[in-house]
Design a protein around this nucleic acid. Structure first.
Lengths: 126, 126
DNA sequence: TTTAGTGTGTTACTCTACTAATACACTAAC
DNA sequence: GTTAGTGTATTAGTAGAGTAACACACTAAA
C-alpha cells in the first residue's frame, strides 16, 4: 500500500507515481491487471481525485499504464528489457550530472570510478 | 564573464552561484581575491542587487567565499582536497539516487558499473 | 564629520506548481 | 433508459520560490 507523506516537499502526485512504479515492479500489480480506480484510491489515500488522476496520467504518458475508457487503468505489459531501458534512462541523467562535476574539477575517469565504487560500497550494493 | 539565461527555468541566483564557482575553479578569482561588488555585478548582469546578494550569501554559506563587513566578498582559500571533497559530496547525492533505482530493479553492482562506464564513454570522459 | 563605497534587512509583487471543488462524458450492466 | 461505475475538463484557491524596490548599517578614506 502506498503511503503519502503530507509534510514532504515531494508533491503528492509524484509520491503516488513512485509508489505505483514500486508496486508494479514488485509484482503487486501484474501485466494487464487493473489498478484501483481514481476515486477509490483518492478515498484510500485521503487526497483529491484530481491528484490521483494526474499521477495516473503521467504513468500513462510514460507507457507504464494504459486506460480503457469508462473502465479503468491497467498495467502495460512490459518486457524486462523495457523496464531496464527505462531505469537506464533515469540513471543516465544522474551520471551526466556527475560527468559535469568531474569536468569542472578536471577529474579523470579513474578518480570518478573510485568515488563511484566507494559510494557503492558504502551503500552496500552487492 | 557569467552569462544569465533569462528564459531558463534555473533561477538567476542559481546561475550566478554556478557561474561564480566555475570562475573560481578556473582561476579567474584566486584565493583571497575580491569578487565584484553586489551592486556592480547587478548592473553588469542587469539583475536586482538582491539576486546577487542571495547568490553570494549561499556561496558564503558553503564556505566558498567570505565577507568583510562594509568592504566586499572574497574567495576563501581552499586546498585542492577541500574542493575535491565538495565535489565528491555533490557526486554522492547522484550516486545514491542511482543506487535507489538499481535496488528497485534488483540490479547488481556489475550491471550498474556497466551502465556507468557506457555513459562515461558516451560522454567522452578520459 | 562627511562621503562613497560595501553588504543587510524588510516588504511586496509576480509567477508557477500543486491541490481541490465541481461538473462533464464515456462504458457496461440491468 | 436508468444507474453506477469509470476517467476528463474547467475553474479556482493556496503556498512557495524568485525577484525587485527601497531603506538601513557598517567601513574606510578624505
Amino acid at each position: 500500500m502506498i503511503r503519502i507523506n503530507e509534510s514532504s516537499p515531494i508533491p503528492i502526485y509524484q509520491q503516488i507515481i513512485e509508489g505505483m512504479q514500486r508496486e508494479i515492479l514488485a509484482g503487486v500489480f501484474g501485466a494487464d491487471d487493473r489498478l484501483p480506480s481514481i476515486r477509490d484510491l483518492a478515498v484510500a489515500l485521503k487526497v483529491n481525485p484530481n491528484t490521483i488522476a494526474r499521477a495516473y496520467q503521467e504513468l500513462a504518458n510514460t507507457g507504464t499504464i494504459y486506460f480503457k475508457r469508462g473502465q479503468g487503468a491497467y498495467v502495460t505489459p512490459k518486457s524486462a528489457d523495457d523496464l531496464l531501458e527505462q531505469a537506464r534512462g533515469e540513471m543516465e541523467k544522474h551520471i551526466i550530472e556527475i560527468v559535469a562535476i568531474a569536468r569542472s574539477m578536471n577529474l579523470d575517469r579513474q578518480v570518478v570510478r573510485k568515488i563511484f565504487d566507494a559510494v557503492l560500497d558504502q551503500q552496500e550494493v552487492k
